[in-house]
Design a protein around this nucleic acid. Structure first.
Lengths: 217, 217
DNA sequence: CTCCATTTCTGAACATGTTCAATAACCATT
DNA sequence: AATGGTTATTGAACATGTTCAGAAATGGAG
């Protein structure tokens, strides 16, 4: 590991640990620099903004999510169950950060921020996150209209983003409400999806798909 | 108007004007103070944080939304059309702030969250915003399952929040994509809603309603 | 080994949101 | 009008994200 890589790694580790222990606001650049044994300016040599350090945390959490999920996926080929697994393990991975989640959210939400899940800067991390839900779909044995199947990973990811937003504001003990929402939502999805194949669902479904495509373009 | 009220009003007006002209980031407290002819500390005597000034803007926009919508509501009693009106006029009211919307969004979602549309602090403004969609529903002549009807205003408001989020990231000219989404979404809603009365929709519908109630509590 | 360009690093300086002790203005009561 | 308490206002100070001009370290060419 080169000197440069070493410094960068030390900053990253220090930052992530501090984010976990102290939360977003309490983690100051000066503190990170001090704990990493470098100068403030040097931190900025490697990371243009504090948000870029949050992104490191975000990647870590995402990798954690992926790892947790892979274990669970072997258990079932039912789409709704797989979705539930993905959602619940997503919440598990986020759990250590719930206390200061609002701070992180504020940092993440701005499109100009490198961390925004919707912004252009985070295209690869986003693709990686969506891939989890690609696995949800790919490993399922349910019959799904082909067109819908193509859009589904992104839609489920979007639902997961919504769940995450809910989770941020969820102060129920252990974020039980969020977990209930994940379970109930997955179940509902499982009962509604088969209806998509009924004849009169054709119209609304293709309407929905058109809408999505138009919105994305 | 008492001296105190006068000062407060001057701060509010100066701040809102600056937010509109310069956007969120470029509007500094020092600038507001200077333009309002007061000291920095005095601004803080009336408004605990910069976000509280954003809230003033938020209320203004909301009042604007309400005013625009009332004109349009007279035109139709069709639920989907009324929803479209509410959504499009919402975007109209927001339009002047699109350029610096990211900054406002970050402020709105912020930790202390006096401005957050979901936080507890903003209960009344939120209720006011939901009322717009209450009017969407109340003024419609469509037949809607009673239970659903009760939840609908809040659900539509939630959809509007989602649309707003999309709009923030929408860089298409004139935010055309957001408008298309509002129109298409309303239309889709109009075609799907009647299906809620079909017998086999019973199960999923009550499942959905249970979910919502559990999440809110 | 020497030299020099490039990379890495430093710490002071800056902008801005926020706090606070001190002062001024105001107003009801005597 | 004088007094005293409450309200309003001030400006300096503080914390923190960020920038920047320059110093130090590095590493390859000669």
């Amino acid at each position: 590991m080169s000197k440069s890589e070493n410094t960068r790694a030390k900053i990253t580790e220090t930052a992530i640990e501090s984010f976990r222990e102290r939360g977003y606001d309490q983690t100051t650049i000066r503190l990170i620099a001090e704990e990493a044994g470098i100068s403030v300016g040097n931190a900025y040599y490697y990371f243009p903004t504090k948000n870029h350090l949050v992104q490191e945390l975000y990647l870590r959490v995402q990798a954690d999510h992926l790892a947790r999920v892979e274990a669970g996926f072997a258990a079932t080929t039912d789409l709704a169950k797989r979705l539930e697994i993905a959602l619940l393990h997503g919440l598990d991975a986020l759990e250590p950060y719930h206390d200061s989640a609002p701070g992180f959210l504020a940092a993440a939400i701005s499109p100009t921020s490198a961390v925004s899940p919707f912004g252009a800067d985070a295209a690869e991390p986003r693709a990686m996150a969506i891939r989890v839900f690609g696995e949800v779909v790919r490993g399922s044995t349910n019959t799904i209209p082909a067109e819908l199947k193509r859009e589904l990973p992104e839609l489920l990811w979007l639902a997961y983003m919504g769940l995450t937003l809910f989770w941020v504001y969820d102060n129920s003990p252990g974020q039980a409400k969020s977990r209930a929402l994940a379970k109930g939502g997955s179940k509902l999805f499982g009962t509604v999806l088969p209806l998509a194949r009924l004849p009169f669902a054709r119209g609304p479904l293709s309407q929905l798909l058109d809408l999505i495509r138009a919105a994305r373009k």
